[in-house]
Each structure stands twice: as C-alpha cells, then as structure tokens.
Measured scan of single mutants.
Amino acid sequence: SKDAAQYVYDEAQKGVTQVTVNGVTFKFDNWQKLLKYAQKLLN
C-alpha cells in the first residue's frame, strides 16, 4: 500500500537499514538501498 511505502520511505530517511511492515521485516546492507526500495514502492 502507499501508506506502507511512505512509512518505509520515512524510515529510510532516518538512516535505518531495516524496517518492519505488516509483520514483515526487510533488511538492507545500507539505508540507501532501503531508500531505493521505498522509492520503487512509491512509484
């Protein structure tokens, strides 16, 4: 959902490398990768 994507995006902006959405945890090597993933979700 857009809300989940926005949440992931906001978390990535904080510099975190993992985020949990609806009980599913996504882990990334660095926050830039998390940010890229979030941007994909938002598009």
Rank of each mutant, 00 (worst) to 15 (best):
Ser1Ile: 12
Ser1Asn: 11
Ser1Val: 11
Lys2Gln: 11
Lys2Leu: 10
Lys2Glu: 07
Asp3Leu: 07
Asp3Gln: 07
Asp3Ile: 13
Asp3Cys: 15
Ala4Ile: 05
Ala5Pro: 15
Ala5Ile: 05
Ala5Cys: 15
Gln6Ser: 03
Gln6Glu: 12
Tyr7Arg: 12
Tyr7Val: 13
Tyr7Cys: 15
Tyr7His: 15
Val8Pro: 14
Val8Cys: 15
Val8Ile: 10
Tyr9Phe: 12
Tyr9Val: 08
Tyr9Ala: 12
Asp10Ser: 06
Glu11Tyr: 10
Glu11Cys: 15
Glu11Ser: 04
Glu11Asn: 07
Glu11Thr: 13
Glu11Leu: 13
Glu11Trp: 15
Ala12Asp: 09
Ala12Gly: 05
Ala12Met: 11
Gln13Phe: 13
Gln13Pro: 06
Gln13Gly: 07
Gln13Asn: 11
Gln13Asp: 09
Gln13Trp: 13
Lys14Trp: 13
Lys14Thr: 12
Lys14Gly: 12
Lys14Glu: 10
Lys14Val: 12
Lys14His: 10
Lys14Cys: 15
Gly15Asp: 05
Gly15Glu: 07
Gly15Lys: 09
Gly15Val: 11
Gly15Ile: 14
Gly15Trp: 14
Val16Pro: 11
Val16Trp: 12
Val16Tyr: 07
Val16Phe: 09
Thr17Lys: 02
Thr17Pro: 06
Gln18Asn: 06
Gln18Met: 07
Gln18Ser: 05
Val19Met: 12
Val19Glu: 01
Thr20Arg: 11
Thr20Cys: 14
Thr20Leu: 14
Thr20Met: 07
Thr20Ser: 10
Thr20Gly: 05
Thr20Tyr: 04
Val21Phe: 09
Val21Gly: 02
Val21Ser: 05
Val21Leu: 03
Val21Asp: 09
Val21Met: 10
Asn22Ser: 12
Asn22Ala: 14
Asn22Asp: 06
Asn22Thr: 13
Gly23Cys: 12
Gly23Leu: 15
Gly23Ser: 03
Gly23Asp: 06
Gly23Trp: 14
Gly23Val: 14
Gly23Ala: 13
Gly23His: 07
Val24Asn: 09
Val24Thr: 03
Val24Glu: 02
Val24His: 03
Thr25Glu: 02
Thr25Phe: 14
Thr25Val: 10
Thr25Gly: 04
Phe26Gly: 01
Phe26Glu: 02
Phe26Met: 07
Phe26Ser: 01
Phe26Asp: 02
Phe26Leu: 08
Lys27Ala: 15
Lys27Ile: 15
Phe28Arg: 01
Phe28Ile: 10
Phe28Asp: 01
Phe28Ser: 02
Asp29Gly: 13
Asp29Val: 14
Asp29Cys: 15
Asp29Ile: 15
Asn30Thr: 13
Asn30Arg: 09
Asn30Ser: 09
Trp31Cys: 01
Trp31Tyr: 04
Trp31Arg: 00
Trp31Val: 02
Trp31Thr: 00
Trp31His: 01
Gln32Ile: 09
Gln32Met: 05
Gln32Asp: 03
Lys33Met: 08
Lys33His: 07
Lys33Gln: 06
Leu34Lys: 00
Leu34Gly: 00
Leu34Asn: 00
Leu34Ser: 00
Leu34His: 00
Leu35Tyr: 03
Leu35Val: 02
Leu35Pro: 00
Leu35His: 01
Leu35Phe: 07
Lys36Asp: 03
Lys36Gly: 05
Tyr37Cys: 10
Tyr37His: 02
Tyr37Met: 09
Tyr37Leu: 14
Ala38Asp: 00
Ala38Asn: 00
Ala38Gln: 00
Ala38His: 01
Gln39Met: 13
Gln39Arg: 09
Gln39Asp: 01
Lys40Met: 11
Lys40Ser: 05
Leu41Pro: 00
Leu41Lys: 01
Leu42Asn: 01
Leu42Gln: 01
Leu42Met: 02
Asn43Tyr: 06
